[in-house]
Simulated scan of single mutants.
Amino acid sequence: MKVVVIGGTGLIGSKVVAALTEHGHEAVAASPSTGVDTLTGEGLAEALAGASVVVDVTNSPSFADDAVLDFFRRSTEQQLKAESEAGVAHHVALSVVGTDRLQAIGYFRAKQTQEDMIRESGVPFSIVRATQFFEFAQGLADSATEDGTVVAAPIKIQPIFSGDVAAAVARTAVGAPVNGIVEVAGPDTFAFEDFLRKGLAVQGDPRPVVTEPQGLYWGAALQESDLLAGPDASIGATSLAEWSARQA
């Protein structure tokens, strides 16, 4: 089976390509570095020739509200148009657990737009929503740092190893379209402060972390469980402790 992985040279995409290849599929990494630009459509038709599945794991280079919305809208439009013309039978997109609950944040409004476009396209689809990756702890801390201290929102988080996300995306890609959402999450739930502290420790980052009762997540007030997956989520195999030990 030929599977084109849009964003196939990035953190998740490269692992999806490796997983599919290991299981005997023809996995094609498509990105600007391989001559495919989903914002303009350049190289898409050639990459999708003969493809059964397209996997979209791209992300916007800017998280500014207007820029991220423009990125997902244009990229998704180009992909779906090219897929329809090429007769692609399954579109798989990576999204984020809680997207529908996080609409006060511009990034998640953009992801919701992406999801809605996929649903309305007529192309059979599967949307894989993942929780935040272990690897994102430092970036999350950066977004919440005030005067050298990380000020965490009073919420819970169920982070996951990027390799487990990629494995879930690859499994979904070679399965039948669900025409809905599949959730994947890590095996453990943490207070946000605890996860940030553990993640920063792996990076040797000494910033103190505190929970602020009125603390915000990317500028928005969340309910305690907004970042948690539902009861039917697929659970990744790798714990934060195991991943941390590997980094050390």
Results as ranks from 00 to 15, higher is better:
Ile157Met: 14
Ala104Ser: 12
Asp188Lys: 00
Asp100Thr: 03
Lys198Glu: 01
Leu20Tyr: 09
Leu48Cys: 09
Asp142Leu: 01
Leu216Lys: 15
Glu242Leu: 01
Leu80His: 12
Ala201Cys: 04
Ala170Lys: 13
Asp37Asn: 15
Thr238His: 02
Val57Leu: 07
Ala18Ser: 11
Gly215Tyr: 07
Ala49Ser: 12
Ala229Gly: 03
Arg109Lys: 14
Leu222Thr: 05
Gln103Trp: 08
Leu39Gln: 14
Thr172Arg: 10
Glu46Phe: 05
Pro124Arg: 07
Lys198Thr: 01
Asp100Phe: 01
Leu222Val: 04
Leu102Ile: 09
Ile157Asp: 00
Gln103Phe: 09
Leu196Ala: 06
Val151Met: 03
Val68Gln: 13
Val128Ser: 04
Leu48Pro: 10
Val36Cys: 08
Lys111Ala: 13
Val92Arg: 10
Gly180Phe: 06
Arg207Val: 15
Thr38Trp: 15
Ala30Arg: 13
Ala170Ile: 11
Tyr107Gly: 00
Asp56Glu: 07
Trp243Gly: 00
Ala173Pro: 14
Ser33Glu: 10
Val169Ala: 09
Gly10Tyr: 09
His90Trp: 09
Val28Gly: 11
Ile157Glu: 02
Ala176Asp: 15
Gln138Ser: 05
Asp56Leu: 10
Val178Pro: 03
Ile6Val: 15
Asn59Gly: 05
Asp100Pro: 07
Leu216Ala: 13
Ser244Thr: 03
Asp142Lys: 03
Gly41Thr: 10
Leu227His: 11
Pro61Lys: 06
Thr131Ala: 00
Asp142Cys: 04
Thr9Cys: 05
Thr21His: 05
Pro231Asp: 14
Val202Leu: 09
Ile105His: 02
Ile160Tyr: 00
Leu44Gln: 08
Val178Ser: 10
Lys2Thr: 14
Val123Phe: 12
Thr99Ser: 03
Ala152Tyr: 05
Val178Gln: 06
Glu42Pro: 03
Ile105Met: 12
Thr76Ser: 15
Thr172Tyr: 08
Leu140Phe: 08
Ala86Phe: 10
Leu20Ala: 09
Gly87Ala: 06
Thr34His: 07
Arg101Phe: 01
Pro208Gln: 07
Phe63Gln: 10
Asp65Phe: 10
Thr145Met: 10
Asp65Glu: 13
Val4Lys: 11
Arg109Gln: 14
Ala137Lys: 01
Gly10Cys: 11
Thr113Glu: 15
Val5Pro: 13
Arg101Trp: 02
Ala144Thr: 05
Lys198Pro: 00
Thr99Ile: 05
Ala191Gln: 11
Ala191His: 08
Val151Arg: 13
Leu200Met: 13
Gly215Phe: 04
Ile235Gln: 04
Ser239Phe: 02
Val28Gln: 03
Leu216Trp: 09
Leu102Lys: 07
Thr9Asn: 13
Leu11Arg: 07
Ala30Asp: 13
Thr21Ile: 04
Pro213Ala: 05
Val165Lys: 04
Ala29Met: 13
Leu222Asp: 06
Gly139Asp: 09
Gln203Ser: 13
Ala82Glu: 12
Phe63Ser: 09
Ala47Ser: 10
Ala27Pro: 13
Gly236Gln: 03
Ile235Glu: 02
Ala19Gly: 04
Ala30Glu: 14
Arg73His: 07
Ala237Gly: 08
Lys81Asn: 04
Ala185Thr: 02
Phe136Ile: 01
